[in-house]
Design a protein around this nucleic acid. Sequence first.
DNA 1: GAGTAAAAGTACACCAAGTGCAGAAATGCT
DNA 2: AGCATTTCTGCACTTGGTGTACTTTTACTC
Lengths: 226, 226
Amino acid sequence: MLSGESAVTVEIVDESKPGLRERKKQRTHAAISDAAIALFLEHGFDQVSVARVAEAAEVSKRTLFAYFPTKEDLVVHRLADHETELARVVRARQVGTDPLSAVREHFLDGLRERDPISGLNDHPQVLRLTRMILDSPSLVARMETFKSGAERALAAALRETADTPELTARLAAVQIVAVQWALSQDNAHRMADGEPADARYSGAAADAEHAFALLEHGLGRLTPPQ
Amino acid sequence: MLSGESAVTVEIVDESKPGLRERKKQRTHAAISDAAIALFLEHGFDQVSVARVAEAAEVSKRTLFAYFPTKEDLVVHRLADHETELARVVRARQVGTDPLSAVREHFLDGLRERDPISGLNDHPQVLRLTRMILDSPSLVARMETFKSGAERALAAALRETADTPELTARLAAVQIVAVQWALSQDNAHRMADGEPADARYSGAAADAEHAFALLEHGLGRLTPPQ
DNA sequence: GAGTAAAAGTACACCAAGTGCAGAAATGCT
DNA sequence: AGCATTTCTGCACTTGGTGTACTTTTACTC
């Protein structure tokens, strides 16, 4: 209501500055997450208790759970953006481009850039993270749930931007997500087995082309009667 | 080595009779499972503790966990057969039949028979079970893990019976499982919304045909440039 | 049929993931 | 500086699940 003192308080009062409270929250969030990842990478997800993470982050267990709803979220929150990645790619595609091509090009871009999400990244950090996740059944299960979310988001994007019928959108979405996931997993598995990303690149790209061709043209003629 | 006394012991010694110990184990297994399902159906999976299940089954908590490794298994063990169902269908297909057709016919059979696994079953028991599972995040997550198992089994079957290359088998498997699952879920969802199975049947069959046609011929021409 | 080894079941103490709650501490606003 | 609100904490508690030592039951042998 009053604005007469704005000149005096201009340094302190600002509409878009985070504020101490907000900044502190972000720092705490990061501190907990970092401590968690470091400990999990070193000893394994299932070998480290949340109590130990809280201790390392110099925070009470109760506070930890105020920031992360479950232990798994300490890891998975870092991938949260990727849940809607495909949906965003489909929505942001150029006019005249069909959704499948947009997704294919995006994935091939990911391979080229060695995006960890494509599986084609052999940095020790990434490798260790992958192994850590794969070694923990509860984290693997959490990734599956993650996949479901990606399917739902992609289905919505297909429905809304390509006015695909409800069921068709869902069917296309689950197929696309499943295939992309399988490709990533295959790459990640090879990295874990010691194959260098650069050596694998051309094969990975060829496999991706093959997989997306399968999606586009169907399984029909690839499994003929014996 | 000796067979001279076989006539005397024929009533007692028999190679394929279960024996008291085995029968008792089976009864205990069933008692625990039945008590669990009954309680879960009545109060919800997350609202019933395993201690209460053990009590109802007149068994110690420790014994319960000797029979079922996790709480979720109390429910999911009943579906265990379905994990390898698609793989079995593919392996058992007639010569001259391609895997995709075999799976399609099998699913359509399931719809015709109102097999609960197809989602097209509106028996109150089935409906309540479905709702119970869908209401519990941990059970839903468990079902996803279940799906992964089905994918792996199907991929192996494709590799072995249609000598499909490793990657292609995996890609085909994840697509098939994903599509079938989506169809079942759609049906189950409609049943939960009160649609009668018989009224839904023709639509479900048409949707299934559509979905398998999509699998066979690809997503290519269904999402054309705008 | 008694004796005995193995299997199954139990009681109990324990650990880890979360949650509820009441109070202490930090923050923002005036 | 004073006060309301948010955040953090300690603590007790619930629940899923495990290790262990002990008792009971089953099966087998003499």
